[in-house]
C-alpha cells in the first residue's frame, strides 16, 4: 500500500473545488435547517438547477460567465419559490417530502431523452467552462507545494470556489447576528410563537429558502467547474452527504459547514484509499475493488446515524445546546 499517495490524496481534499462546492451547499442547508428549521431535503436539486443553468446559458445561449451566473441565481430563486409556495404553510415534514420529490423531478427531467438537445439527456453536458477559465488572470504554470500543487486553472477554480464560500460565510454570519436572524431562529424553535409576535413567518421562511437555495445553486456552479454536468451526480445521496457533513461540523455554527466539508472529504478519501489499498494488496480478499468503492456510502450512512443520535449539535457544537437537543 502506498501510504504517501493515500495521505496526499486525503490531505489535498481540504482545498479541492468539490469540497468548496459541498461547503457552499452546506452553508445553504445551515440557513435552512440549522437556523430556520426548514427540512430541505432537495439541496441536490438546487445544485442541479445551478449546474444546468450555468451550462445551458453558456452552451445553449452563448452567454458570458457573469450572465450565466445571474442565470444560476435567478433559476435558484424561481425553484425556491416553486418549492416554497405550496409547502411553507404546512408542517415541516411536507417540505421534506416535497423538496426531495422536486429534486428527483429535476433529475428525471434533465435526463429525459426528449430534452437531449438542451440538457444532454442521460450523458449530460460538458465543454461549458472555457469562458470561466479564459478569465483566469494567473499565468500558465504549476504552483504550490506537496499535495497542494496545482496548475494555473487548478488555482483559479479553487480561488473562485473558496472565495464564494468565504462571502457566503460572512453574509450568513452578518444575517444571523441581526434581528432577521433572530426571527428565523425563533421560527426554528416555534413558528406559532413567532407568528403571535406579529412576524410574517411565511415570508421569512421563503426568504430563508431562497437564500439557502441560491447558495445551493452557486454550489452547483462550483461543483461542475472541474467536471462535466451529469444527471447521475444529483441523486438524493448528494443531499444526505451534505446533511452528514453539516451535522459533523455543527448545523447552526458559522464555520460548521466549512470544517464539516473538509473533515468529510478527508475522512472519506482516507478510508476509501485504505480500503481500496487493502483490497488491491490482497489483504482483504472478500471484497472486489468495486465493492470497496461502495463502502464509503455505508460509512457515511452510519456516521449520519451516529452523529444525529449522539452529537446533534456537531462535533464542535455548543455543549450547552446538547441538553435540549434539536
Amino acid at each position: 500500500m502506498d501510504w504517501g499517495t493515500i495521505l496526499g490524496n486525503a490531505i489535498s481534499q481540504i482545498a479541492s473545488p468539490t469540497t468548496a462546492a459541498y461547503a457552499l451547499a452546506a452553508i445553504g442547508i445551515s440557513v435552512h435547517f440549522g437556523y430556520t428549521g426548514l427540512l430541505n431535503f432537495g439541496q441536490a436539486g438546487f445544485m442541479a438547477i445551478g449546474a444546468y443553468a450555468f451550462a445551458i446559458a453558456t452552451l445553449g445561449f452563448g452567454w458570458p460567465v457573469w450572465a450565466a451566473l445571474l442565470m444560476v441565481i435567478l433559476a435558484s430563486v424561481v425553484f425556491a419559490f416553486i418549492l416554497g409556495l405550496p409547502t411553507l404553510r404546512l408542517r415541516a415534514d411536507y417540505l421534506a417530502i416535497v423538496t426531495i420529490a422536486a429534486a428527483e423531478i429535476v433529475r428525471y427531467v434533465v435526463s429525459t431523452t426528449g430534452l437531449t438537445p438542451v440538457t444532454g439527456g442521460a450523458s449530460g453536458l460538458s465543454g461549458f467552462s472555457g469562458g470561466f477559465y479564459a478569465l483566469n488572470p494567473i499565468p500558465e504554470g504549476t504552483y504550490g507545494f506537496g499535495p497542494f500543487t496545482y496548475t494555473a486553472d487548478g488555482w483559479w477554480v479553487r480561488i473562485v470556489g473558496w472565495t464564494l464560500v468565504a462571502i457566503a460565510t460572512v453574509l450568513v454570519w452578518l444575517l444571523m447576528r441581526s434581528p432577521w436572524g433572530r426571527v428565523v431562529k425563533g421560527i426554528r424553535e416555534d413558528e406559532d410563537a413567532v407568528r403571535s409576535l406579529g412576524k410574517n413567518v411565511y415570508s421569512y421562511k421563503m426568504q430563508s429558502l431562497v437564500l439557502g437555495g441560491v447558495l445551493g445553486g452557486l454550489a452547483g456552479f462550483v461543483f461542475i467547474l472541474p467536471r462535466a454536468v451529469q444527471p447521475g451526480n444529483y441523486g438524493t445521496a448528494l443531499t444526505f452527504f451534505i446533511y452528514t457533513l453539516l451535522l459533523l461540523g455543527g448545523a447552526a455554527t458559522v464555520f460548521g459547514p466549512i470544517v464539516g466539508a473538509m473533515i468529510f472529504w478527508v475522512v472519506l478519501s482516507l478510508s476509501n484509499g485504505i480500503i481500496v489499498g487493502l483490497v488491491e494488496s490482497g489483504i482483504v480478499s472478500f471484497l472486489t475493488p468495486d465493492q470497496a468503492g461502495q463502502i464509503r456510502f455505508i460509512i457515511v450512512g452510519v456516521a449520519l446515524m451516529l452523529l444525529v443520535i449522539f452529537r446533534p449539535q456537531g462535533i464542535f457544537g455548543n455543549k450547552k445546546e446538547l441538553s435540549f437537543s434539536v
Binding site: P179, R182, V183, K185, G186, R188, E189, D190, D192, A193, V194, S196, L197, K199, E321, F324
Partner: peptide, 15 residues
C-alpha cells in the same frame, strides 16, 4: 411556546 434555544433576552427582543 418559549423559544428554547434563544436566550431569555433574545426571546424578549423578538417581541
Amino acid at each position: 411556546k418559549s423559544l428554547g434555544r434563544l436566550t431569555v433576552l433574545q426571546n424578549m427582543l423578538l417581541g
